[in-house]
Write a protein that binds this DNA or RNA. Structure first.
Lengths: 331, 331
DNA sequence: CTGGGCGATGTAAGCGGTTACATCGCCATG
DNA sequence: CATGGCGATGTAACCGCTTACATCGCCCAG
């Protein structure tokens, strides 16, 4: 691969390499010289070597993204938002999965630091920032997405899980439900959604219905729902995510319960399938792509030395047919 | 950030930088010296700068991945397979979405080449290799996943869509169906699946039922199914992917048809929701993670100068309750 | 005893850029 | 007319690492 270097461009344009570099990076160059250089660049097909640039400047124009689990359905959207704003600014990114394994995560970070990433985007659960600081000493700027532990100067972007869950639950209450069960999720999102659920109930003077733990998977939702149905005593259930809601649908069907006539269900995430279930699932939409885009802008700000603060994004209720307005009644 | 360089390690260990480099990279070094160097490395927390290494060796230990659409549900799995084998070999990767936009794709490749990727993994549809060659001249080794145009020396890994579709259709035929409709997908996967469908039918001496075009989305499946149902004349339908199958479920329900009693359905992909639909959807499972892993191994082989050939992976039928065994009858 | 060979190590030249500093005209000013 | 200042450009050092080549002991064979 006969790479074209800046020297060849310099020679072709009849100037020095310094001038070529300046012409390319907006340094002080006579307009006429600049066009000559650019012409040579084009003619030769010159493309600056990012590695060499990085070595010389200490900047790699790369950001590292660490995510617990890339298989999540919303991750794709988030990544898209992030990638777009970064790419527009000429930044590349390297992304990797931590699999929720601290050792693995540390190794990934090590590798990223070796590649001189200019910023780190940490998504979801993982090593707490203090642990990182202890292990790695000085770190490049960090942006957190849906992750705890953002101190001052570490912008955190997240979905308002608590408020979303609150809205979901309120939606059920307003539909006339008085006994509302909950299938809980995992980790922080799970806790926050449960909190919102409880707040809505408390505010309405209602006792929390049965609450059972799930693991965010279809199977987990299914098992949780069976447990719930065995107990009975509720007319609606707020499920911490759509995948589990699917399991709930299944358990309800097997139990001979019709949704929403016998049981109303609200999910969370608004996955693509939600609108096409039978009945269509009422759920909360997460602005995942926007979350990614905001994080990307935060990265750019931080890299540019501008301070920036995080944000909590609301999620919107998608009311569909899985919730029934009732007068009374109990499973 | 006071980076520790190889010079500091050399000084601390009382050797020259060359020796440090050799000790680290398995060059000829006296055992005693090596331990001394490694001790210094540990003590100082030295971490080689990948950029500088890359510049010096011409190798970046990075591979570039281009994918049309990262939001696809199977992409996460594929990426996991790929990332794992790459990471185990000390390779990082930069991934980006082309959005099926040739201009964008070309720009991405340009950026990757500038970063001196040692190999390219091209996923799904995109610029044909000849176009790439014309635009970029010499390219690093390329591995194709689910993409056309692999010539000699360009290993291609793909799912056996045709055979999968054939199996799906056979499954319906064996269940007694004689009039089998098809909701077609897009691009190559769509064409291949349709081909398998037609082959199974032809082989069984059956006429292809109504075939209507879909776009792989729930909505597309829904619309296609409505069109199909308006025509009628079939007892089963093979849908080119699970998401569209969901739309078919919806249309069937709205049309008052019960699945599988009035209509049998087979999908493709085995997305997580498939097993939890009502009824559970019979579909074909794609070994996406394995596909990624194989591609990763191919990259490693190519980078190591070993030739390697592509592979076509079969997909397995997950028989579930959306198909009914029948004696006769027509919608 | 001496020269050759070999393994361990050091020296220094790149890799392809950026950039501090020096140089060089040229023009306005005193 | 000499001088200072300024914009455009060139020179060369440096970023952190790898590696070809030189050097240096040391051991063994002649």
């Amino acid at each position: 691969m006969e790479r074209v270097t800046i020297y060849q461009v310099a020679e072709a344009a009849g100037v020095s390499v310094a001038t070529v570099s300046r012409a390319l990076n907006g340094g002080p160059v006579a307009p006429e010289t600049r066009t000559r250089v650019l012409a040579a660049v084009r003619r030769l097909g010159y493309r600056p070597d990012r590695l060499a640039q990085g070595l010389a400047t200490g900047k790699s124009r790369t950001v590292g993204v660490v995510i617990p689990d890339a298989a999540g359905p919303l991750y794709g959207q988030m990544q898209r938002g992030l990638a777009d704003v970064l790419a527009a600014a000429g930044f590349g990114y390297i992304a990797t999965e931590s699999r929720r394994d601290p050792g693995r995560e540390a190794a990934l970070l090590d590798e990223m630091l070796a590649r001189k990433v200019e910023a780190l985007v940490l998504v979801g659960s993982g090593l707490p920032p203090e642990a990182l600081k202890a292990r790695f000493g000085k770190l490049p700027p960090v942006v957190l997405i849906e992750r705890e532990g953002g101190e001052a100067g570490v912008p955190t972007f997240q979905i308002d899980n608590e408020r979303g869950a609150y809205r979901a639950t309120r939606h059920l209450i307003e539909a006339g439900h008085r006994r509302i069960a909950h299938v809980r999720g995992l980790r922080r999102a799970g806790r926050e959604r449960e909190a919102g659920y409880r707040r809505a109930l408390a505010e309405a003077g209602l006792a929390p219905g049965p609450v059972v733990a799930g693991d965010f998977s279809e199977e987990g939702g299914y098992r949780a729902a069976r447990e719930l149905l065995a107990a009975g005593g509720f007319t609606a259930v707020f499920v911490a995510n759509d995948r589990m809601a699917l399991g709930v649908y299944r358990a309800a069907f097997e139990g001979g319960l019709r949704i929403p006539d016998d049981l109303s269900v609200v999910g969370f995430d608004n996955l693509p399938f939600a609108a096409y279930l039978n009945p269509p699932l009422t759920t909360l939409e997460q602005p995942a792509q926007r979350l990614g885009a905001l994080a990307g802008e935060a990265v750019l700000a931080l890299v540019g030395g501008r301070p920036i603060t995080g944000q909590v994004l609301p999620c919107g209720l998608k009311a569909r047919a899985s919730v029934k307005h009732i007068e009374g009644g109990t499973v």
